[in-house]
Computed example of a mutant assay.
Amino acid sequence: MSENGDQPLPSFDRLNVLVVEDEAIISFLIEDMLREFGCAGVTNVAGVAEALAAIAEQRPDVAVLDVNLDGEEVYPVAERLKAEGVPFVFTTGYGVDGLAPAWAHRPVVQKPFRAEMLARALSAVLATV
């Protein structure tokens, strides 16, 4: 059941998810949410170089990208994912206003967020592939 009890969370069985988040506690929280959704695998990385290496090693099915990684913007990762046709959502404490104008049309989940907010955003981007 969802946190508010009205609907079960969607299932994302068999999905491999890349989480790009520099705050370890938040990264693990997102991983827990994704595991609750039924994701098969979650890869956590904290920076752009690590994320690009992870994508090269194993293309994820979907990704969750924190916009600001300890002062470094995640947009090179977003560019790579876009080029490879991998859907993704941004996370930021600033909501849509925290995105560069070129990315403002992309889905964003504002921090702090609940599992159902992340699930809705992932469902939306996965429906477009």
Rank of each mutant, 00 (worst) to 15 (best):
A127H: 01
E21F: 01
E116W: 10
E57W: 04
T91N: 04
E57K: 14
E50S: 13
A49P: 01
E31A: 09
D61L: 11
A104I: 06
A83W: 00
K82R: 15
F37L: 10
V20A: 06
V74A: 11
I30G: 00
P60W: 05
G47C: 14
G93A: 13
T43R: 15
V20F: 05
G41D: 14
L9K: 02
D32A: 08
R120P: 01
F28D: 08
L18W: 09
Q7M: 11
L118H: 11
Q7C: 09
E73F: 12
P107A: 14
Y75V: 02
D13N: 11
L15F: 09
E21N: 06
L126Y: 08
E50M: 04
D6M: 13
A115S: 13
V64N: 06
V48Q: 12
D70M: 10
G5S: 08
L29M: 15
L34R: 05
E57F: 03
S123C: 10
L34D: 03
F88R: 05
E79K: 13
S123P: 01
F88I: 07
G93K: 05
N44V: 11
V45H: 07
L15R: 12
R80H: 06
D66H: 02
V20L: 11
Q110C: 10
D32L: 00
E31K: 14
P10F: 08
P76E: 07
V19N: 04
R35D: 07
A104F: 02
F28C: 02
N16R: 15
A53I: 01
G98P: 01
P76W: 07
Y75W: 01
V86G: 02
V20P: 06
P101V: 00
L29T: 13
Y94D: 07
D61S: 13
L52R: 13
P60D: 04
R59N: 04
E57C: 09
V125H: 12
R106S: 08
E79I: 09
N4Q: 05
T43N: 12
A46I: 02
I26T: 14
E50P: 02
I26D: 03
A102F: 00
E72C: 09
V86I: 15
G95C: 01
N16Y: 06
N44K: 15
Q7L: 13
K82V: 03
L52G: 06
G41C: 02
A51M: 06
G38Y: 00
S2H: 02
P101G: 00
P10N: 10
F37I: 05
L99G: 04
R14S: 14
N44T: 10
S123L: 13
P112V: 04
P60G: 10
N4D: 15
L81A: 07
D66Q: 02
